[in-house]
Design a binder for these strands. Structure first.
Length: 115
DNA sequence: CCCTTGACTATCT
DNA sequence: GAGATAGCCAAGG
């Protein structure tokens, strides 16, 4: 463990990549999964420093709002990517299809209709 | 070494 | 439910 860790810890990237399509996770959530409970803010930096493209758009704030100012370029981009995966955005808040808790990846891939 | 920033969060008003 | 406050922690000037 040298200068690694924190913003360069692959665990962060892995956690982000592990988010199933159609679902989202918060920064704090990712941080905790990766083993850094209090480093929610570092997650964003870690994602920027990722050598490989990440599904960064699936990472939102704990209150389900996007982390960018509404109307900004990044905001629109994230919103579009999310909608492309079936996530609605209402009143600036994202509405995941389901918690990955009671929705299997199979259902996501098969496109099982909700309800 | 001190101060500011930031793709954050929980809590209180 | 929206705005203000305090806690949080690494990076950069």
């Amino acid at each position: 463990m040298s200068d690694f860790q924190r913003t360069f810890d692959p665990a962060i990237w892995e956690a982000v990549r592990n988010i199933p399509a159609g679902n989202v996770k918060s920064y704090g959530n990712i941080a905790r999964i990766a083993g850094y409970p209090k480093h929610s803010r570092m997650v964003s930096k870690a994602m920027c420093r990722s050598p490989k493209p990440l599904p960064w758009h699936r990472v939102v704030r704990s209150d389900l709002t996007l982390a960018f100012p509404e109307g900004s370029d990044a905001y629109e981009k994230q919103a579009q990517l999310l909608e492309m995966e079936g996530v609605e955005i209402i009143h600036g808040k994202v509405k995941p299809l389901r918690s990955d808790n009671d929705m299997s990846l199979d259902e996501l891939l098969w496109g099982t209709p909700p309800e």
